[in-house]
């Protein structure tokens, strides 16, 4: 009997994160990291405090923020341990758990902060 891999769980999260980051990732990075800070194509105040707070208060906005942060982390962390394997590093069960745990911790922190910010 060959043992069933638990990859389906983490591969689904990897795939979902890969899809979200492929669909809107480049634009998101451009908007928050380049356009708004430089005032290039978008005004400096597009990400101003009141607006971002309103986004974080809105249930749909909360969901969007949590999904982006969580899935980006799960996507990246899953690929990261494959990277280690590709570089010839033996990936132990503990290292895999650490990678997925890191993503889970990031998700928990994001959800906690969104709850703290309130509705």
């Amino acid at each position: 009997m060959i043992r069933r891999s638990n990859k389906p769980v983490f591969w689904s999260l990897f795939g979902a994160g890969g899809m979200v980051s492929a669909l809107i990732g480049p634009m998101l990075v451009f908007v928050t990291g380049i356009a708004v800070p430089l005032g290039f194509l978008l005004p400096h105040d597009a990400l101003r405090y009141e607006r971002m707070l309103a986004l974080a208060h809105n249930p749909a906005g909360k969901l969007a923020l949590a999904v982006v942060i969580s899935l980006f982390l799960f996507h990246g962390c899953h690929r990261f341990y494959h990277c280690l394997h590709d570089f010839g590093i033996h990936v132990t069960a503990g290292m895999k758990a650490a990678c997925h745990g890191f993503a889970a911790a990031g998700t928990a922190l994001a959800v906690y902060l969104l709850l703290v910010i309130g509705f």
Binding site: L65, F72, H75, G76, F80, L109, A110, I117
Partner: peptide, 22 residues
């Protein structure tokens, strides 16, 4: 495959922003 490092880092930047927002 290396793009994953940047995607993780960006997610942490956003997480940091959320923390500062709170």
């Amino acid at each position: 495959e290396a793009s994953c490092v940047f995607i993780i880092a960006y997610a942490l930047v956003l997480l940091c922003g959320l923390y500062r927002l709170s």
